[in-house]
Structures are given as structure tokens and as C-alpha cells.
Design a protein around this nucleic acid. Sequence first.
DNA 1: GTGCAAATGTATACCAGGTGCAGTAAGGGT
DNA 2: ACCCTTACTGCACCTGGTATACATTTGCAC
Lengths: 222, 222
Amino acid sequence: MTGLRERKRARTHAAISEAAIALFLERGFDHVSVAQVAEAAEVSKRTLFAYFPAKEDLVVHRFADHQTEAARVVRARPPGVGPLAALRDHFLDGLRNRDPITGLNDVPEIIALTRMVRETPALRTRAVHFQEDAERALAEALQETAGVPALTARLAAGQVVGTHWLLSMDNSQALAGGQSADERYAEAVADAEHAFTLLSEGLAGHLVSQLTTRATEPQRSR
Amino acid sequence: MTGLRERKRARTHAAISEAAIALFLERGFDHVSVAQVAEAAEVSKRTLFAYFPAKEDLVVHRFADHQTEAARVVRARPPGVGPLAALRDHFLDGLRNRDPITGLNDVPEIIALTRMVRETPALRTRAVHFQEDAERALAEALQETAGVPALTARLAAGQVVGTHWLLSMDNSQALAGGQSADERYAEAVADAEHAFTLLSEGLAGHLVSQLTTRATEPQRSR
DNA sequence: GTGCAAATGTATACCAGGTGCAGTAAGGGT
DNA sequence: ACCCTTACTGCACCTGGTATACATTTGCAC
């Protein structure tokens, strides 16, 4: 099943990424060249790019594993549970388990890493890019399992993924500010519950005034 | 007030951008180098970068004008009108007026341009980046004028901006597929109204099942 | 008008990310 | 032992973007 080749490949992959992250954390993403990473990992620049399509991926490839997480959660939810409830509970589980993806993990290296992602535009951009895939996958899952039109599914997926991201960033920022995960936990839960409630119940009840309709349709002025 | 210098600067700015867009539309964004753009615009490469911080901005700088549009709409809404209603009506106005930002403008060059932005990853990425600013501005506006907590404002801003983007892309795609703006209009309006209703009323009523709570709190497994 | 400081533009060289190519070493199935 | 696929390397090359040092224009005070 797992031949020597595969194992070796996996080890090289990890070795390069680790060397890269160590250097990045030490000197900053922008102040380390891929050539230096390659040298530190004892690989040629060409080989590095055979493992990672871009410099940013040396860091952000870990996010790729979570691309389909939301979609899987929705598909795997027990019968009778709404997709939103499943997603909310999954996120709350993540908080409880200090899953790094929720931003609520205070292992120093994780803190430093998420901070770097937050503060380095190129990395944030790349991370956001992965979310588009997550959105697509989630939209599909919603459409197939929740019997909902495509447009609704895509809108909902965008909102869920966006919410997830915002919550994670907030947590990670709080931890970067010195709070421990345990200290932050209660607020993280409260924020998450608030966010998912908002998703579920809509903005109308929370933005004070309601949706009102216009008295007259204005003319088209072209 | 507007000295000769400023006017000349504005003209150069426009000239470079136009030369760039013409070339990009002709040969594709990735197959034109900035050096070629500079040559076509009869400027040095260095000067080009004095006007545009990055290659992508040669195209997407037009989006920058709309960065604060949502925020302005919210701030400028007449008393008694909810922020969401103001945003929805503004978007519907945009559709009616075939505002390019809504994606519902079938002037050939605009279609080609939005298609290029949609299909070129670098451009999409850059455009998305501008939305972050839009989100921040809108969040501020919501917080200040709708008396809502910061977290709520930021979540709402993200959802609104994301919705706006999705609707625009859908319209632009439909038009790229050959539909005229007039043909697409009715569906564009229906989609927009559906999307804003979703925002207002929440997902609960639309994803079939409601938010349910768990019977027992699972143990934390760390 | 004249002259000058500031702004603007240019040429050139340079750096870093990323790719194409041609060749070499090494697994692994037969 | 065989060969073939795969992995890796070095090197040249392209492109986006920046630094430096120099030339030109322009607004403006006089």
C-alpha cells in the first residue's frame, strides 16, 4: 500500500515545510527567500517547487486539509439535524478541543504561525483562496442534502465560511494578545453562538430596523 | 484648484490603464508583460509603477471607487430606513441603471473586462482584496449608525459584501454567456431580492430544518 | 520673463519567485 | 540483470517589482 517511495515523498514534503516554517518564524515570511528555504531543507529550488506550487503554500498547505471539512460535516450529520446546527456544533466541538482551525489553540508555535498568516498579506490572501474551494464544496453539500436551490446554497455557504473565518481570526488574535485558550474559551463560545444565531435568524432582528419597502418604484434612469 | 500638473497626472493615469486594458483584452492578462504595457503607453516601467502599485491594479483600480460605497449608502440612508433595506434598494437601483458594479452591464467592453476579472485568478484575488476594505468600512458604518455590537457589525458586513459579490458575478457570467442585460434583468432582481431576504430573515427558514440543540454536552477530548 | 526647488520621468541594474529543459541517479517490477 | 518510471538537480531564463542615480518638466516667487 504505502511503498517506500510514498513514505519518502511524505517525509521530504514535511521536512521542507518544517524547515520553511522555522525560518519564516525566525526571520519573517518576506525576509526569507525560497532559495534559502531550499538550502536549509537540503533540496534544490526546483525540487521545492515540485512539492509546493508557491512559496505561500509552504505555510498554508495545512489549511488545505480543512477545505472540505464543512462539506463533510453537513453530509455526515445525523438525520433530523439541520445543516446549520451541525456546522455550529462542529465548530463548538473544535473550540472545546482547541482545534487550531478555530484559532483557539495556544501552543506557542501555532500562535506564532496563525499570527504570521494574519499579518502577512500574501499568506492571508492564499488562505482566503482555499476558502473558495471550501465554499464550493459546502454549497454542493447543502444543495444535495438540504434540498435547497443552488443560489441559496451558495449564499449560505459563503456566509458560513466567512463566519467561520472571522471567528477563527478573532480567537487567534485574542491569543496572540496574550490570553490563554482557557481564558478566551467562554467568549469564543459566546461569539460563535451569537454568529450562528445571526446566520440562522437573519440580520433583521439585530440591525434594529426591519426591511422596509419603498412606496414607489423609481424610474429607470439610464 | 486643479492645476495643470494634476490634470496631466490624471491623463497619464487613464492613458496607461487604457493601454493596459486594451492589450489585456486582446492577448490575455497573463500573456502581456508590464514592460509591454509601459511601451504601449509610452512610459517607462518605473513610471508605470509610480501610477499603479501592481500589475493587477491596471485593471481593478476601477473597483477601488466602490470600496466605500456600501458604507456610504448605510450612512446616507434616510431616517426610518433599515441599513439592510437601504443596501438592497441601492443594489436594485444599480441593476435598474445597469451599473457595471452589479454585473448587469452589457456594453461589450465591460463584459469582456468582468469576464477577464472572473477568469484570471490574480485579478479575482486582487478584487477580493478590495472587498476587505469595503467590509471594514461597512462594518464601521453599521456599528455607528445602527447601534449594533462590533462583532455583529463585522459579521453582517461580511455577509452583505459577500452577497453583493456573488450576485454581481452571477450577472456578469450570465451576460458573458450571451444574454442581454434586459433579458437577464428580471432574474437578477429576483436573485437579489431572494439574497437580501435570506440575509434579513436568516437561513433557518430556508435550509429546511431548524437549529436544534444537542441533548447532552459532549466531553472535551483533548 | 527668469530662475529655482520640487515633483516627475527615465535608464539601468538588480532581486526574488517561478518555469523549461536536459541530464543523472535511483526504485521497483519483471 | 533488465528497463522504465519517477525523483532530483543545475542552469538558464522570464517577469514583476524596487533602488539608485540622473535628466526634465512645471509651478511659482520675484
